[in-house]
Design a protein around this nucleic acid. Sequence first.
RNA 1: GGUGAGGUUCCCGAGCGGUCAAAGGGAACAGACUGUAAAUCUGUCGGCUCAGCCUUCGGAGGUUCGAAUCCUCCCCUCACCA
Length: 405
Amino acid sequence: MSVFDVLKERGYLQQMTHEDEIRQLLEKEKVTFYMGIDPTADSLTAGHCMALMVMSHMQQHGHRPIALLGGGTAMVGDPSGKTDMRRMLTKEMIAHNAACFKKQMERFLDFSDGKAIMANNADWLLDLNYVDFLRDIGAHFSVNRMLQAEAFKARLERGLTFLEFNYMIMQGYDFLELYRRYGCTLQVGGDEQWSNIIAGVELVRKIEAKPVFGMTFTLLTTSDGKKMGKTEKGALWLDPARTSPYDFYQYWRNVEDAKVAQSLALMTFLPMAEVKRLAALKDREINEAKKVLAFEVTKTVHGEAEATKAQDAAGALFGGAGAAADMPTAQVGRDLLGKPVIDALHAAGIIATKSEGRRLVDQGGLHLGDKKVTAYDEKLEADHFKDGSLLVRKGKKTYHKLTLS
RNA sequence: GGUGAGGUUCCCGAGCGGUCAAAGGGAACAGACUGUAAAUCUGUCGGCUCAGCCUUCGGAGGUUCGAAUCCUCCCCUCACCA
């Protein structure tokens, strides 16, 4: 089975510039392809996982991925997302972020022996000469045509700066550079990158007169249309210091029913037969599928040991067994014994404000071990702790382990 | 550069001298129902030493017993014109 069929069967593919040619290309040749990533943070997020999954499938079938960091384009800002203008990054920051990304990507991709490449478009964008660039590259872009792009339509109503307008041109130019440097002939990206991808494909075809291609993959969204992998508290990070493996696991464990099948196909490497079997589960049974999903995704990102820990912790907590090994831990000083529970939890950072604590108590959402806290002035006592730790539950799903220091 | 419209609590958005910690919606949080799902319903939703007090309505001043609301200057955004 070719990668093309794999990608198609799993439901990754959204749009392609030339479906038949791409299929043939992927079946007959070892293709060098790339995907752009904004280096604006020092960790990738679950949103990137989709992309990494695609790249991984491709690499497993012998193709060579290039992860292109948008170190240059990051200074301009992509108008096709809803995000506002992005801030400038220093070279040091980008280098740091790149190193962090690479570590995380190694879970998905094999970078040894040049089997995968990391590039940074700052390497060519920053030294461009404006006049030369306009003449050589700018001449190939039709403004009329660019204005057709879906990405700009929305922004045209609200205002679009010339700076952002150029993003597409720079993106297109990236493809040309990668074609020249690495013989890269295919660009992949999230579907919101479609217009940028076309721009690159057309540019290379015009200048080099060589057939290059582009394709986009589906965005994994919740049923109300939001991108998956974002929590209300922010992104779901791959960096365990930002999002603990436990929380990461829980995110996938709690995926809505309607998205389980798709998530399994897109976010795990499980064989499709197994995906289909799990996806067929209904009602209460579907929880089995969610456990598998959560475990598999966590395993890919954090490794099997962490995934197992997260799974055990979740099992212990929700299975009712009480204390578990791996969950967020907080400490309080012994001097807080005898002080109101709310004060102690505030000091430990489990609740942000004391008002929040009072609210939780009012609403009956705060538990120490299996006892509900019923009064504001309830005190934290030494005998709340068993073996030096105390399980604090906030609401139904948020658990913290509190220890004395 | 000119003209006009704006900047309100996480977001959108009312308020236009006291009854404003500030309508309404969204998000979020808690509770009920459940399957650690969705939907629905109820409640909460600036902080605190909590029947009271303190800090918020772009920034700095001013008028007033009293300002998010009026005046002055400044900063920023948007639209149209140049």
